[in-house]
């Protein structure tokens, strides 16, 4: 195991993050605050509580997930796309590192950033809405698992992308709609029955539902099912990454 290499990649990625602190931390916090001002205070005051949870508190887990997914994907995809774009990937490819070490460095750094950001958003939310976390350990577990899974997903996108447009298109066209339709701002049970069934095909529903359960002990879908779905998605991502390095897809000719 080349621990020095993992450390080098991880440190490099985190320092890139600190260099762009404004973009990577402050802007998600500001946008989250805006969500709270609009949905929590302005609209939320006119909404009834859902499953016994006030609307302002209800949307917190969904908002954290929204940011967690976006940040994990964009951090990880950008982290591996940039060396490909600038050509500096030659160094990683010629270094005595295994695929697992490269992934640990890049994905580990991206997941670390998203988890820190998720926690920061929780702290920010506390300024607007009082809430409690029923299962803090489970909450943290969901946070970390989701961050790792979607950082892996972002890593795959970053390797697949051969232009900036491709880098943006999956988050924009697929992930953001799935997140908004995945119950960030409402409970699936509020939908007409047909849409409730369709919603079950949206993987983000499981992420948000399980995460919300860890806060308030209530959920659209059982926490066990949510956890299982995250693990399935994690396994799929790991399998794809394994295939990428085995075949050298878009990395080595």
């Amino acid at each position: 195991m080349n621990l020095h290499a993992i450390r080098a990649i991880y440190g490099f990625e985190l320092s890139r993050w600190f260099r762009t602190l404004g973009q990577s931390i402050i802007s998600p916090v500001i946008s989250t605050s805006l969500y709270f001002v609009v949905f929590g205070a302005a609209i939320g005051a006119r909404m009834g509580s859902i499953d016994g949870v006030s609307y302002g508190a209800f949307i917190i887990p969904g908002l954290v997930m929204l940011n967690l997914l976006n940040e994990s994907i964009s951090n990880a995809s950008f982290g591996i796309y940039m060396p490909k774009f600038s050509g500096t990937i030659y160094e990683v490819l010629s270094a005595p590192v295994s695929a697992a070490e490269v992934v640990l460095g890049y994905v580990g750094a991206a997941a670390t950033k998203s988890v820190l950001l998720g926690l920061l958003i929780l702290v920010t939310a506390r300024l607007f809405v009082p809430y409690e976390i029923a299962h803090p350990l489970m909450m943290f577990g969901f946070l970390v698992l989701t961050a790792v899974t979607f950082s892996l997903f972002g890593f795959i996108i970053g390797i697949w992308a051969d232009g900036f447009e491709k880098l943006q298109i999956i988050p924009l066209m697929i992930v953001t709609p799935l997140t908004f339709l995945g119950g960030s701002f409402y409970s699936i049970s509020m939908l007409p029955p047909v849409w409730q069934t369709i919603a079950l095909f949206n993987p983000v529903v499981y992420l948000i539902s399980g995460f919300r359960w860890s806060f308030y002990g209530v959920a659209d879908i059982g926490a066990g099912v949510s956890l299982a779905m995250i693990l399935v998605f994690l396994s799929v991502c790991l399998a794809v990454v394994w295939w990428i390095f085995r075949t050298g897809y878009r990395l080595k000719s």
Partner: peptide
């Protein structure tokens, strides 16, 4: 200096 240190680590040498 940071980029040269990065290379050293990547190739498995301690800082």
């Amino acid at each position: 200096r940071a980029t040269v240190s990065f290379s050293r680590g990547l190739f498995g040498q301690p800082p």
